[in-house]
Amino acid sequence: MSAILDILASASFWAAALRIATPLMFGVLGALICERSGVLNLGIEGIFTAGAMAGWLAVHLGADLWTGVLAAALTGAVFGLLLALLTVPLGLSQHVAGIGVTLLATSLAYFTYRVVLPTASTPPRIEPFGPVRLPVLSDLPFLGPALFSQTPLTFLALTLFGLVAFVLYRTPLGLAIRAAGENPAAVEAQGLDVHLVRIGAVVTGSAVMALGGAFLTMSAFNAFFFEMTGGRGWICIALTVFASWRPGKALLGAILFGAFDAFQLRLQHEVAGAVPSQVFLMLPYLLSIAALCLVARRADYPKALMIPYVKGQR
């Protein structure tokens, strides 16, 4: 018991939680933008992989880190556009199109990796983002090392949450996105183009998702390797439901999951040998399922989610 408390009271634990949560923050935020407009983006897992690949590749080929981030976002936007064209104007099944995009994006990322490095047996490393020091904040006792010793991408993710929440709830654009996910006929009747709103949301959301992938190669593992996303995209889809499609709760959910994961890593150390390590690996997922059961039962989902809008049909 005291071991658990020790873990929770250590600054390094919270720093790790925030670090682990960062890719999920990008992912859940991207998924939220798409779904609020009425499109389920199951391309997320592939977009993660493609973003990780694009960011890493740009830096590996000599670009600077922020150019790599931009490359990842653009890659995400391109796959987002593909998904949007399939699901919005063509109105195809969002499940099938999304899984298709995941398979395509993942395979293309692996393919590119092999084309660029036909013979490499160990993935080449890049010089990743280092932690930024914020004046005053980073020097606070406990809070400084716990919250304010992160890499720039984590702070970017946190900033994006504020920005997206503002746009969604305080601007005409956000209102149009929310209405498009709720009742597209209402958007059309007010003279706006439903398809344009949805395509825009999916492209933007996908670009944000790809940043989560970029974090993995450019801030966490410093290299690209196969299977590196490890289902984080799917976790984000679940987190969106957990968050009832609200940015604030989405941030909370991502951090909660990050904390679970950081916690099990430390717990493995504490009781090494007594319990198989796989049990601990399972822990965050089990806790996520439990949290979902508690929170998501009465989730107020966007009413037009997954329903294609065809003009002139009701």
């Binding site: 149009a176 929310r178 709720e182 009742n183 209402a186 009747a189 009413k303």
Partner: peptide
């Protein structure tokens, strides 16, 4: 043609 989860005023200004 109303979005049910939005408020009256939000539907009006959409």
């Amino acid at each position: 043609a109303l979005a049910e989860s939005l408020s009256v005023i939000e539907n009006v200004v959409l």
